[in-house]
């Protein structure tokens, strides 16, 4: 499945985009499968959007979906 995946901030280093900016998910059809494929720390995958709408680990994905995954920020002091 060909996806457009935007990994924000600290997650950017986990990206596996091809030259055209697409991520190819070979196994599975959910955000969880995508996160596992990318090797993201699962406990920190809290905020996800798919085509602009909030999703979660079980949200199903379709060809050409636009996925954003945000790590949580905690600092402030």
């Amino acid at each position: 499945m060909k996806l457009r995946v935007k990994l924000m901030s600290l997650f950017a280093k986990y990206g596996k985009e091809d030259r055209e900016g697409f991520t190819h998910l070979e196994h599975g059809t959910t955000i969880r499968a995508l996160a596992e494929y990318l090797g993201l720390p699962m406990e920190r995958v809290k905020i996800v959007t798919v085509n602009g709408k909030q999703g979660d680990l079980e949200t199903p994905l379709s060809e050409n979906d636009l996925v954003y995954i945000f790590p949580p920020a905690i600092g402030g002091g």
């Binding site: 901030s9 600290l10 720390p41 406990e43 920190r44 809290k46 905020i47 790590p71 949580p72 920020a73 905690i74 600092g75 402030g76 002091g77």
Partner: peptide, 21 residues
């Protein structure tokens, strides 16, 4: 829903610069 159950946040790795604050 926003906070991870465990571990530090981004700031431990990335710092907290003045412009972001």
């Amino acid at each position: 829903r926003l906070c991870p159950e465990t571990g530090p946040g981004l700031e431990k790795e990335l710092g907290t610069p003045p412009f972001t604050a």
